[in-house]
């Protein structure tokens, strides 16, 4: 009997998973904090916020320069980048901080010109209310809403800002606890604002829908970075705290799981029960393969 074949199969069975594991071990999440980036009245220090952002980006990509970092994330000189914000400020202002957006845009400009950066939310009024000025001109970073944007893609039922205009997408969520069925409003929920307005309410009590939106090609294939503004977050509905940090990952699922962990650490300190893992997150990982919750995730914590 030729023993070579069975030995080969046994060795393959043992070694292949090891190689697979090392191949997928690249999921990285950076949790970076800088207490000097924000004060107790929600005022950011631009310089310290930029330092925080720069440090996290270079850590995530293991790059030496911004240009190198963005290229490692897949950005090329001909790209147009759409950045989705969450400006829904109901009860407590948790819109992304201007200083963080400025740091992000400055960094992107190491590869692309300012005018090929589009910052959007739905509706435009939410951007204005959050202190941003609308800019559709050919000069500077563009700011506008999906309701005054480029229309909606009939197939994907998403704003054409991401389906047609932009070639890359950055998901900029806020660290927001909403409890109820969604638990938190993070990366998955943020893209509900990229939908046709009539589809937005479908995400309520439908975790499959919530997860599926992020699996649509324009989001899944174009997203190069998920960034969560946790300078000020909420750990229970309507109750904010100054975490003073940001969470960054290429993987939306891993990033969201890390953000939930941050919220739960605060809840533990406040003697509150931990938030349950959202069903949408599990579906996003298992059914839509949008990332990894825990397995093969490497978390790097930075305290500045």
């Amino acid at each position: 009997m030729n023993m070579r074949k069975p030995i080969f199969f046994i060795l393959s069975a043992l070694l292949v998973p090891l190689f697979q594991q090392s191949a997928t071990a690249a999921v990285k999440v950076v949790l970076a904090r800088n207490p000097r980036a924000i004060n107790e009245r929600n005022v950011c220090n631009a310089l310290e916020t930029a330092r925080l952002f720069d440090r996290a980006l270079l850590e995530l990509t293991a790059a030496k320069t911004h240009e190198e970092a963005w290229k490692m994330l897949g950005l090329i000189a001909s790209d147009t980048v759409a950045i989705k914000l969450n400006c829904n400020n109901w009860t407590i202002a948790l819109n992304p901080h201007r200083e963080l957006i400025d740091a992000l845009c400055r960094s992107l400009q190491s590869v692309i010109p300012a005018n090929r950066i589009i910052i959007y939310d739905n509706p435009e009024a939410a951007l204005i209310k959050s202190g941003f000025s609308i800019n559709r001109s050919a000069v500077g970073v563009r700011f506008f809403g999906t309701d005054h944007g480029d229309g909606f893609d009939a197939g994907e039922r998403l704003t054409r800002i991401i389906s047609a205009t932009a070639s890359k997408v950055i998901n900029l969520a806020s660290l927001k606890c909403v409890e109820e069925d969604m638990v938190a409003s993070l990366f998955l929920k943020n893209h509900i604002g990229s939908l046709l307005p009539e589809d937005m309410p479908k995400c309520h009590n439908d975790p499959d829908f919530l997860a599926e939106v992020s699996s649509r090609p324009s989001i899944k294939n174009k997203t190069i970075l998920n960034l969560c503004d946790g300078l000020r977050g909420s750990y229970r509905r309507g109750v904010p705290w100054y975490w003073g940090g940001i969470i960054m990952s290429k993987d939306a699922v891993a990033g969201e799981a890390a953000a939930l962990q941050v919220i739960n650490e605060k809840r533990q300190k406040e003697k509150l029960p931990p938030l349950a893992e959202p069903e949408a997150l599990r579906i996003a990982e298992i059914k839509y393969r949008l990332g990894s919750r825990v397995r093969d995730v490497v978390q790097t914590k930075i305290e500045m």
């Binding site: 109901w90 909403v178 109820e180 069925d181 309410p201 995400c203 509905r237």
Partner: peptide, 11 residues
């Protein structure tokens, strides 16, 4: 109410 406060309206 969903147009105003999104999913929070359920409560």
């Amino acid at each position: 109410i969903f147009d105003y406060m999104d999913g929070g309206g359920v409560v």
